[in-house]
Amino acid sequence: MDFQLTEQQIAIDEGVRKVCAGFDDAYWTECEEKARFPHEYYQAMAEGGWLGITMPEELGGSGLGVSDAAVMMHAATSSNGGYSAASAIHINMFGPHAIVVHGTPEQKARWLVPLIKGEQKACFGVTEPDAGLDTTSIKTFAARTNAGYRVKGRKMWTSTGQVADKILLLTRTTPKKECKRPTDGMTLFYTDLDRTKVEVRRIHKMGRNAVDSNAVFIDDLFVPDEDRIGEEGQGFKYILDSLNPERILVASEAIGVGRDALRRAATYARERVVFGRPIGQNQGIQHPLAESWTYLESAYWMVLRAGWLYDNGRPCGAEANAAKFLAGRAAFDAATRAVMTHGGMGYAREYQVERLFRESILTRIAPVTEQLILSFLAERVLDLPKSY
Rank of each mutant, 00 (worst) to 15 (best):
P96N: 05
M55P: 01
E57W: 05
Q9L: 02
I91S: 01
P367E: 08
S292Y: 08
R263S: 13
T54Y: 00
A261C: 13
R259Q: 12
K121I: 15
S242C: 12
R228H: 11
G280C: 00
L59N: 06
E359C: 09
E14W: 08
Y310F: 15
A261I: 03
D134R: 00
L115F: 10
E370S: 00
A109T: 14
A299M: 09
A318R: 04
P114F: 07
Q120W: 12
V353D: 08
C31E: 01
H287D: 12
G230M: 04
G49S: 08
E7W: 03
A306H: 06
G233Q: 07
M93L: 15
L193N: 03
G317Y: 04
D130C: 07
I255P: 01
R36P: 02
C179A: 09
R181A: 10
R208K: 00
A323N: 01
R247C: 03
S213L: 07
Y41F: 14
T140L: 09
T173Y: 03
V353W: 03
C31Y: 01
D194L: 09
L304C: 06
T336R: 04
P38T: 06
R380E: 14
K155Q: 02
E32S: 09
A143E: 10
M156C: 10
F222Y: 11
A338G: 13
G344P: 00
R305G: 14
I91H: 03
N312E: 15
E319K: 06
E271P: 10
D130Q: 11
A320G: 11
A109Y: 00
G49H: 04
N312R: 13
E128V: 02
M45F: 08
E199R: 13
F141A: 06
I279Q: 05
V16G: 07
P278W: 02
A330I: 03
T6S: 15
A26T: 11
F332P: 01
G49C: 07
F217S: 08
D241T: 15
G103Q: 06
V66A: 05
V19I: 15
H74T: 04
L289H: 10
G82R: 05
Q120A: 12
T104Q: 05
R355Y: 15
F325Y: 14
T104Y: 10
R337H: 12
G95I: 05
P96H: 06
L362F: 13
E354L: 14
P96M: 08
L326G: 00
A331R: 01
M186S: 02
R208F: 09
G82W: 09
Y310G: 01
I365F: 14
F124T: 01
G95F: 09
Q107Y: 12
L374F: 07
K386T: 14
G125H: 04
Q281H: 00
S79G: 06
G313F: 08
I138S: 02
G82Y: 09
D220R: 07
A269Y: 12
L262A: 05
Y351L: 11
E379Y: 12
G346S: 10
R150C: 06
S79V: 03
